[in-house]
Amino acid sequence: MLKDITIGQYLSGDSFLHKLDPRTKIIAVILYMVSLFIVNNFWGLGAMLVLSLAVVLISRIPLRFFFRGIKAIVFIVLLTVALQMFMTPGEPLWELGILKITKEGIRQAVFMGTRLILLVSVTSILTLTTTPISLTDGIETLLKPFQKIGVPAHELAMMMTIALRFIPTLIEETDKIMKAQSARGADFESGNLMERAKAMIPLLVPLFLNAIKRADELALAMEARCYHGGDGRTRLKALQYGRRDAVAGVFCLCMAAGAFLTRLL
């Protein structure tokens, strides 16, 4: 059950999207998100939907991965849709006591629901087609210019890399400790909320202790290999823009410009 967690999952492949430079992809996702919120008529929203479908097809990733990702946010989407529908003031279409649905409400609900779903699918395309390592590399290089104003770009990227690296390890360990404690009669599955929370202590104490110990060892191992932060560090695989990045970049700029135009018209 714990092994089903798929945060930042990556699926290897050799599609156009897989080969793009991570920086291009990160900027593209940001532009897409901005455009998504700039667009304010149904034609524009429809275009964004078609665009994301095209991207999904180009990535050649099995559709069930997207559905799995969307399943996780179904509750949030429904909540947003319901809130928008009932809370937006305007011309009432249907009324029951204090509940009323307005024309503006329905419009808002459709917009917010679609935006949320598109947001999640496009960001999951980013993680599905980019290895965690190149993703953090990309973030690091993009943040470099902000180092002058005190953003610790390298440190942030390193922290992200390490965190991603240890997610599977921690899941495995949780599984192991859970088993060991249930062999001693611990019960994680029944009881009320308080009892269950209490039952977590035998799991969490060893888990945290081991994680802290592991962090210590990792720090030592990194220092032993002369790690001293980002200054003067070179890379085995330096990031390099190619022709396809130019294509993708121009395309994304057009998309953003188009989004702006829908506002003006």
Partner: peptide
């Protein structure tokens, strides 16, 4: 679970 006691590898990591 009462009949069969299971000691995992490195059981000291489960002390709490």
């Amino acid at each position: 679970r009462l009949k069969v006691g299971l000691v995992f590898q490195y059981p000291e990591y489960q002390l709490f």
